[in-house]
Amino acid sequence: PGLLEPTSCLIRVVKSAPTLGIAIEGGANTRQPLPRIVTIQRGGSAHNCGKLKVGHVILEVNGTTLRGKEHREAARVIAEAFKTKEKDHIDFLVTEFN
């Protein structure tokens, strides 16, 4: 489904630091239906990657859609993706437009 978003882009964040280092707001049943990045912490993996930006809306995490997921569930999906030892990276499908 994400591939049909004309303005979406896939960003790979390598787990290069002990934290991911992003803050997100939004989720299903809120004013911001998909999680949006509101902060990127210096020194975190996301900051080191250099491609994730404040304002990016996260559509998918490692191919899992966040559409329809409430805030805590979306946050859990991202946290699990960072925690798992199976991959040394997380693939975020993001868009700059709401």
Binding site: L20, I22, A23, I24, E25, G26, G27, T30, Q41, A79
Partner: peptide, 15 residues
């Protein structure tokens, strides 16, 4: 659109 306005703001989570 009116429905949107009634939706609550989201909490923020640091990950």
């Amino acid at each position: 659109r009116e429905k949107r306005l009634t939706l609550p703001p989201s909490e923020i989570t640091l990950l």
